[in-house]
Design a binder for these strands. Structure first.
Length: 346
DNA sequence: GGTTATGATTTTGA
DNA sequence: TCAAAATCATAACC
């Protein structure tokens, strides 16, 4: 311990004369009449600094308290804060005004549209709804696919919100910690509230860039899920035999006018367990394919015509009127001059 | 693996 | 806006 002052003196004599951290008047002690006196001052100050660690905690606290209670301290800190604001911070401030990031806005909009962020939609996602609309309704398979889609989207949503919550919590904790630290430090060094505010905004920016990554990967996951779902939608499954028979029966028994009304389509759809749109598709395909190759469908037409005739005979023998096919047609009836669509009256 | 059948989608035209 | 026609994509069959 006794060595320290001597050591410090030897240092100051040569090395500390040009120390950048010392005030000018303390660095000018290389010669002149009062040069030795200044060296002595520097020595004293440095000795105080070096011995401060030897002081007890109570002593240090007492010194700190004395400094804090100094009558000139608030004024001095105010001046220093002002100088800081006018120099470094004001320069930074000009750079901090940034417009909202368009990429972030796009990500936010997409997450909102897909139902990942924002309030949860009861019916699932917009994509599922759009896909359902495009496929003309919700069949048994479709609804299974939709529920699968919704379940996966809900998983994504859950992960997204959990992660987001974690980030927000971490951000808040870190911000509070830094704010407390700065407030504490502001007692011993000049820190303006603006500076704290600026620090907080820097922290928020850092965390929002992490959030952006989260949003980006969530969007990617949704896009992959969506494309898989839409691909699945295109998968074709043949109707079951019974459904095909019901549709064929109707088609051949209405060969003169194979255009079922909306009510008839709905009924057929119900009977076949398919959608009205699928019924429309089926009739559209059947009409064009029959017309293109009547010969090929001749046998099929005859078979259904015979079956319809038998049904009608059975119905009349039971004393009831058959309400479906009014006039079973021969296979050659479509397309014939007598064929009239509901809309295309000749 | 090639062909045909068939459901779905897109384009065209009235 | 709807149906016809063309086309696509996949299931089913050999």
């Amino acid at each position: 311990m006794d060595e320290q002052p001597r050591l410090m003196h030897s240092h100051t004599g040569v090395g500390m004369a040009g120390h950048p951290g010392l005030p000018q008047h303390l660095q000018e002690g290389t010669g002149g009449a009062d040069g030795d006196g200044r060296k002595q001052d520097i020595g004293d100050i440095l000795q105080q600094i070096m011995t401060i660690t030897d002081q007890s905690l109570d002593e240090a606290q007492a010194r700190k308290h004395a400094l804090n209670c100094h009558r000139m301290k608030p004024a001095l800190f105010n001046v220093l804060c002002e100088i800081k604001e006018k120099t470094v911070l004001s320069i930074r401030g000009a750079q901090e005004e940034e417009p909202p990031d368009p990429q972030l806005m796009r990500l936010d909009n997409m997450l909102l549209a897909e139902g990942v962020s924002g309030p949860e939609k009861g019916g699932g996602s917009a994509a599922a709804a759009a896909a359902a609309a495009a496929s003309g309704g919700v069949g048994a398979d479709n609804s299974a696919e939709h529920s699968d889609y919704r379940a996966k989207l809900s998983q994504i949503r859950q992960i997204y919100h959990t992660e987001l919550e974690k980030y927000e919590q971490a951000c808040n904790e870190f911000t509070t910690h830094v704010m407390n630290l700065l407030r504490e430090q502001s007692r011993t060094r000049p820190i303006s509230p603006k500076e704290i505010e600026r620090m907080v905004s820097i922290i928020h920016r850092k965390f929002s860039s992490i959030q952006m990554q989260l949003k980006q990967s969530t969007c990617e996951a949704v896009m992959i899920l969506r494309s898989r779902f839409l691909d699945a939608r295109r998968k074709r499954r043949n109707f079951n035999k019974q459904a095909t028979e019901i549709l064929n029966e109707y088609f051949y028994s209405h060969l003169s006018n194979p255009y079922p009304s909306e009510e008839a389509k709905e009924e057929l759809a119900k009977k076949c367990a398919i959608t009205v749109a699928q019924v429309s598709n089926w009739f559209g395909n059947k009409r064009i394919r029959y017309k293109k190759n009547i010969g090929k469908f001749q046998e099929e037409a005859n078979m259904y015509a015979a079956r319809t005739a038998v049904n009608a005979a059975n119905a009349s023998s039971h004393g009831s009127q058959a309400n479906s096919p009014s006039t079973p047609n021969s296979a050659g009836g479509y397309p014939s001059p007598c064929y009239q669509s509901d809309r295309r009256i000749q």
